[in-house]
Amino acid sequence: MAIPIIVYPPDEGGARHVRADGTILGLAYSVRDIAALLQTAGLQDFNEMDVVRTEMIEWRGGGPEVWTR
C-alpha cells in the first residue's frame, strides 16, 4: 500500500502530528509511536526500522531523529 504519509515538525512538547492519506492519525513522540499509528491505519507489517527507512514518509521539520523544536 503506497499512501502519502506526512510527519509534521515537533510541537513545544515534542509531539509530531502524523497524517496518512489526508487523515490525521494522531500524535507521535517517537518512531515507535509512528509505527503503531501506521499499523492501526492498515500497515500492519510496519515496524520502527520501516519508519526510518521508507520513502513513503515525508518528514517535515527534521527526520526521524528530531523530536524537539
Rank of each mutant, 00 (worst) to 15 (best):
M1A: 08
M1K: 08
A2N: 00
A2D: 04
I3A: 03
P4A: 07
I5V: 11
I5T: 02
I5W: 01
I5C: 05
V7T: 08
V7P: 12
V7E: 00
Y8E: 15
P9D: 00
P9V: 02
P10Q: 13
P10T: 02
P10V: 06
D11Y: 01
D11H: 07
D11S: 02
E12P: 09
G14E: 12
A15F: 15
A15E: 15
A15C: 10
H17D: 15
H17G: 11
V18D: 11
V18R: 10
V18Y: 09
A20H: 03
A20T: 07
A20M: 06
D21F: 13
I24W: 09
I24S: 12
I24C: 01
L25T: 00
L25Q: 05
L25A: 10
L25M: 01
G26S: 04
G26Y: 07
G26M: 07
L27N: 14
A28E: 00
S30L: 01
S30F: 04
V31T: 06
V31M: 09
V31P: 09
R32Q: 00
R32G: 00
R32C: 01
D33A: 07
D33Q: 01
D33K: 06
I34C: 09
I34K: 05
A36R: 15
L37D: 14
L38I: 09
L38V: 01
L38H: 11
L38Q: 04
L38F: 04
T40M: 05
A41N: 10
A41L: 05
A41E: 07
A41Q: 01
G42A: 00
Q44G: 02
Q44K: 10
D45N: 10
D45W: 10
F46S: 08
F46A: 13
F46G: 04
M49V: 15
M49R: 15
M49G: 13
D50V: 12
D50Q: 09
D50M: 01
V51W: 13
V51R: 12
V51G: 13
V52T: 08
R53Y: 11
E55H: 00
E55D: 03
M56V: 08
I57V: 03
W59D: 08
W59L: 11
W59I: 14
W59R: 06
W59K: 11
G61N: 09
G61L: 02
G62P: 06
G62M: 08
G63S: 00
G63R: 05
G63P: 01
G63A: 09
P64K: 10
P64I: 07
P64N: 06
E65G: 15
E65N: 15
E65Q: 14
V66C: 06
V66K: 02
V66Y: 06
W67F: 02
W67M: 00
T68A: 10
T68H: 09
